[in-house]
């Protein structure tokens, strides 16, 4: 790997290759453009600093996803205390979808572009507790396999499976009236 030898141009290529993937991941996780851009920047900074520690037996994409995911989870944790999925499940559907979309994204353009359904999905994903949100975003928005998610999060596949199942059930309940 050229980038490892401090080759700036090679690293720039890495950035080109992965920046959009990491940005999409962070944007879906945090639902905030500005924070997502910060995460992208922090991710590459970390990659650069730790290139020597990168284990070549591992896929590079797995490694960079892990760094990006961890940074997103850190931010979600700082934002608010996590509560259990059960508490979330009992949550009343009183909040309207509109309020859940971050104010900076509430431009007339996006309102037009986002159908009511899409807004609801975004809101539902956003209300997932971090550990389920991570798995669901990686599974559906990044289309990683269960095995790949287990590699990224360094957790057993059975745990990932359980989280996908519970995440799906949670979203099904949230979206019930739209289905």
């Amino acid at each position: 790997m050229l980038a490892r030898k401090g080759d700036q141009r090679a690293f720039a290529e890495l950035v080109e290759l992965y920046k959009d993937k990491i940005f999409h991941l962070a944007y879906r996780m945090l639902n905030n453009r500005h924070e997502a851009e910060d995460v992208v920047q922090d991710t590459f900074l970390r990659v650069y600093k730790n290139l020597e520690r990168y284990d070549e037996n591992q896929k590079f994409s797995t490694w960079i996803y892990r760094i990006g995911t961890n940074l997103c989870i850190d931010r979600l944790r700082k934002r608010k205390p996590t509560y259990s999925l059960d508490a979330e499940m009992n949550d009343q559907e009183g909040i309207d979808g509109y309020a859940m979309i971050p104010s900076e994204d509430r431009t007339p353009e996006t309102e037009y572009m986002l159908s009511e359904t899409q807004q609801m999905i975004r809101q539902a994903i956003d209300s997932l507790p971090a550990k389920y949100k991570t798995v669901m975003v990686l599974r559906y928005m990044q289309e990683l396999s269960l095995q790949e998610i287990s590699d990224v999060l360094d957790m057993p596949v059975t745990t990932i499976k359980t989280r996908v199942h519970r995440g799906r059930e949670f979203l099904r309940k949230k979206l019930e009236r739209k289905l």
Partner: peptide, 24 residues
């Protein structure tokens, strides 16, 4: 539900500003 989730993936996200790469 799953179809809706996969559907959101196709939803376009405005790409990052170019300066982000330069900043990195």
């Amino acid at each position: 539900t799953e179809m809706m989730l996969f559907g959101i993936k196709t939803q376009r996200i405005e790409p990052m500003a170019d300066f982000v790469t330069a900043n990195i």
